[in-house]
Amino acid sequence: MKKMLVIIVILAMILVSMIIYKNIAINKNKSVNVQEVEQIEEYISKIYMWKEITKEALPTFENINNANELWVWEVIKKNLETYETTYEEIQQKGKELFGEKFERQIPKEGNDSFYYDKESNKYLATEIVLDEEEDSFLLKDIEKEGEKYKVKIIEYIEDYSEENKVIIRNLKEEEIGRVSTTDSETKIKEIVKNNKERFSQKNIEIKKEKDNLVIEKVNKE
């Protein structure tokens, strides 16, 4: 009985691994394991924004300190545990997300992402309004070189403006396919993978820094 349970657990783990690679990464080198794929997807999800707020969900840059300013502060705001925070907490979150080389500082008077309240000496996250289109990405390739990863992503939009339907669009707003809202996320990813040449793609360089992943640069494919 115990042997049977062990076999079932092992088979379940293998199945989960297969699903992860099928739904997330199209190609990877042998040195990248399942846990690393999950960590990379989770990290990119943290910094992947909404185009209606930052124009691009993930802008291109060669140095994080030269990245689009609004995108930088909105990423930090998105990942804060509370919407009432301090200068130190904002800066610390920036270092956590973007690494020790992150040098930008929140202006004392606040900005479009954070309103400065003089009475409490705290920063309040400004309100955002989102549309019915969800900016999404699919991991395409992952290459590992030491403590660094070269990641390619496919960018797409999930449009929920029609009842009971999800319209898959590219960044040019062209319709690529449709699924029902009752369909699984896997079906959407399959449409993206099968039409990848019609979607925008980006190259991302990520490195391990202490216990965190941090982004170094982003370029268009």
Rank of each mutant, 00 (worst) to 15 (best):
I142M: 09
K2C: 06
T86Q: 09
V179I: 14
R178F: 11
M1P: 12
S184T: 11
M13C: 11
Y116I: 12
K51H: 13
E100N: 07
T181Y: 02
A25H: 02
E174F: 11
N63T: 11
L5S: 00
F114M: 08
M1D: 00
V6H: 00
E127S: 10
N23F: 09
L171P: 08
L213Y: 10
E190N: 06
L213G: 00
N203A: 14
E173N: 15
S200V: 09
E127T: 15
I204V: 15
N170H: 05
N79A: 09
A57T: 05
I206E: 03
I128W: 05
E158I: 09
Q39T: 06
Y116S: 11
E56D: 14
R198E: 12
V129E: 13
I76P: 02
K196Q: 04
K77L: 06
F61W: 10
E173A: 12
Y123T: 07
Y116C: 12
N27V: 11
L213N: 01
N27A: 05
I20P: 06
K172S: 12
E175A: 15
N66E: 11
G146V: 14
A12V: 06
S184C: 02
N194I: 15
L5I: 03
K150E: 13
F114T: 04
E174C: 13
N219T: 14
E143M: 07
E38G: 00
N111E: 07
K3A: 10
T60A: 15
L139E: 05
L15F: 11
Y83M: 13
K165T: 12
K78C: 06
